[in-house]
Design a protein around this nucleic acid. Structure first.
Lengths: 221, 221
DNA sequence: GATACCATTTTGGTATCCCAAACCGGGATA
DNA sequence: TATCCCGGTTTGGGATACCAAAATGGTATC
């Protein structure tokens, strides 16, 4: 694997893992020394992460993108559009094996599953569903949206009840899809995403003070 | 403006203007000498154009993305999802001045308007409509989709009747939006995009032999 | 104590150099 | 004639040097 890809992957992991806080300044030279690569691959990695929305230009320099509540709300609307469309396509599939795989993935999460895994599976549910649609653009849209939401979702304070409800909603969506009821699945998905957004934004607004205290930039809605 | 941005803009224009044919090989050194910049800004420009889908990796090297009929059909589905969502948002606006501006843009095209201008306005109708939604992600999605479609739309053989019909559809969509009938506008938009896609793909399939003769790579659906 | 100003350092933008791998063309061979 | 092989050339990936602009920090001034 090329160094550019390595730098990109490691830097993305540090950003998504909050090892570098939202809003923090980045210098090409720091990244260079941190990962033992020269500026050429570093710049390439930054350019790509910029298109992913994980890094942003700040004047002449670079910044880890802040958590942006307005953006989170806009992404929810965007997701509702593309995930509903993907669901309608997926419901028309005759081969249900893809749905089985997604269900197995959901079922693999139990009470003792680490939080990290819940986070990943909760993301992959949506991404893999979009992939099943067979439409590359819908898939990328969902994947990129979930990437942008990743840090916010990680910072969210989720109560047990909310998590259980979300998982139940995933189940009903799968059931509708398996039965070929695309419109119903789309509708459920839209409500599910709306609910997620409300809880997410609410949680972050509550937590805002604490997050700022940790040095995380949180931009208001 | 930085050289990277200049190279990016000029190269994009050459690709969209078919000065460099779809499928053609690109070398960083050729671009470097062509635009009088060094490889650093050239590489940055290529990385960005890659995310726009105008340029693709070909093994170790670079290629101008071919015209891809399968991609065009997938983009249509994607557009239907995001443009319908944008239309529903736009219909809820109380301020109709944005719609007035779009209508004025449409009206500025007359019988003696150059083809280039029709192409641009036909694109901007959709992009500006999405911009009015106020949702940055829907806007970018439409803008990027239209960019990817640009070359194919330019190569399309459009008969007078089809163009007139498309323009009439634009008008009815605006009317529905102005009246706040978002669902109707969304439905009209979905049909409009579907019709565009059918004519576009049909035209390209008919033209395929001729396009190949011009050295343009056209990938089948 | 606050502020304006200047010297120094840092930083991103660019040009250029090196290298290993891929590519290409021609000649030998079957 | 078709195929294989080999060496020279090209090419992208990476490293580094240089520069102008921006940030920084300390100092003199009010």
């Amino acid at each position: 694997m090329s160094q550019m890809q390595q730098v990109e992957r490691q830097l993305r992991e540090m950003i998504l893992g909050l090892d570098i806080g939202p809003g923090e300044k980045l210098t090409e030279r720091w990244i260079e020394s941190r990962f033992g690569a020269s500026r050429t691959p570093v710049r390439a990695a930054l350019l790509r992460l910029e298109t992913e929305g994980l890094v942003a230009r700040d004047g002449r320099g670079w910044t880890v993108s802040p958590i942006n509540l307005a953006e989170i709300e806009q992404i929810a609307v965007y997701r509702q559009a593309v995930e509903a469309a993907a669901a309608r396509l997926t419901a028309m599939l005759t081969d249900k094996s893809g749905l089985d795989a997604i269900e197995a993935m959901l079922d693999s999460c139990g009470p003792d599953t680490p939080r990290e895994e819940w986070h990943r599976v909760g993301t992959d549910f949506h991404v893999e569903l979009a992939r099943l649609s067979g439409n590359e653009f819908l898939f990328r849209a969902v994947r990129d949206a979930m990437t942008r939401l990743s840090r916010a979702r990680w910072l969210e304070i989720r109560d047990e009840a909310a998590s259980a409800r979300a998982w139940a909603e995933h189940g009903t969506i799968l059931t509708a899809l398996r039965a070929g009821r695309g419109d119903e699945a789309a509708d459920l998905l839209i409500r599910h995403i709306g609910g997620s957004r409300d809880r997410l934004v609410g949680s972050l607004q509550t937590e805002r003070r604490g997050l700022r205290a940790r040095g995380f930039a949180v931009v208001a809605a």
